[in-house]
């Protein structure tokens, strides 16, 4: 406890001026939820890299078809152009009908991305609204729980296969098939969150002030769900893309004239023994997209948790 006494000027022993406003500021901290979320997210170089990769892939796949003259479905009758190795004027080579795989890869990515995005938006949109009502309106609870039990107990794959058999294979069939089962999981997630939020003290405060239900949902509930919903969407995209590839793989995917990653993988696997590059490139692309979305989604979920903020 004993420390040498420092030399202090006697004039320091004067009462100091007291600044009340400065004292008030001692408890004040600059903190913004979104800024901290972004800062935590961007702290990891992996997240930045993968996010950049997603941005590049998405932009390129949507721009390429607009600027490139190559038709991904143009069949070349000249057998010399069939199954050409990568390089040789075709960056990814050609397939068994002489179609340019580079072009097909971008067209395929665009189709799959679009599919993923549409399903994500529908799933999250329906799931959010249904979940909010499920949580808020007590009478809906029984019905929704039953629907959840039914949908959740049917094996996903069986359901997908069944639906694609019933409906004609096509882009929207896959959208419908994946959305029918996809929304309920998100709805339940949202419902559980809403139940937690509903009786929080700040919501009781709003009720005491006579705040109408629509503003309660808009101002008191939804802002708490935004980060969760973004994460859910980010995870639905790779799942949907993967499902489309799976359906294509077992021959129930999109029609063959639609270029998608699923069809590319499906065709590539047939020639895999002779021309492995025809499977390798689409698969690598697929892996890059799904893994990036998956990791970015999870990293974002971590970053959006205020407990991880400083």
């Amino acid at each position: 406890m004993k420390r040498p006494m420092p030399d202090l000027a006697p004039e320091l022993f004067r009462p100091a001026l007291f600044d009340e406003a400065a004292a008030e500021l001692t408890g004040y901290a600059h903190y913004s939820y979104w800024r901290s979320t972004m800062r935590t997210f961007l702290k990891s170089p992996v997240s930045i890299f993968l996010l950049a990769l997603i941005v590049v892939l998405v932009t390129a796949s949507f721009i390429y078809p607009l600027v490139s003259p190559t038709d991904p479905n143009r069949v070349d009758l000249d057998t010399a152009t069939w199954n050409m190795e990568p390089g040789s004027g075709h960056a990814f080579g050609t397939d068994g009908l002489g179609r340019d795989l580079w072009a097909r890869a971008w067209y395929g990515t665009r189709t799959s991305m679009l599919l993923g995005l549409i399903i994500a938006i529908l799933d999250v949109g329906i799931g959010m609204i249904a979940g909010a009502l499920w949580g808020y309106v007590k009478r809906l609870d029984r019905v929704m729980t039953e629907i959840y039990n039914v949908l959740n107990n049917i094996p996903q794959t069986v359901f997908l296969i069944l639906l694609t058999y019933i409906m004609r294979p096509g882009f929207w069939t896959i959208v419908v098939a994946l959305c029918t089962t996809g929304w309920i999981g998100i709805a339940r997630f949202v419902r559980n969150k809403v139940l937690m939020i509903r009786d929080a003290e700040y919501n009781i405060a709003s009720r005491c002030l006579g705040t109408p239900l629509h503003r309660m949902i808009l101002k008191n509930v939804l802002p708490y769900l935004v980060s969760i919903l973004i994460m859910e969407a980010a995870l639905t995209i790779p799942y949907s893309i993967g499902s489309e590839v799976f359906l294509g793989f077992i021959g129930l995917g999109l029609p063959l004239d639609t270029v998608s990653l699923g069809n590319l993988v499906n065709l590539g696997k047939n020639n895999f023994m002779l021309y492995p590059y025809q499977l390798t490139w689409p698969t690598l692309l697929l892996a890059a997209i799904t893994i990036s979305f998956y990791i970015v989604g999870n990293r974002f979920a971590d970053a959006s948790d205020p407990r991880n903020h400083v």
């Binding site: 003290e201 700040y202 101002k219 802002p223 708490y224």
Partner: peptide, 13 residues
């Protein structure tokens, strides 16, 4: 007026 000042304000507003 509520008990817990940490819970009684809407954090996102």
């Amino acid at each position: 007026i509520f008990q817990d000042p940490m819970a009684s304000l809407n954090e996102r507003a």
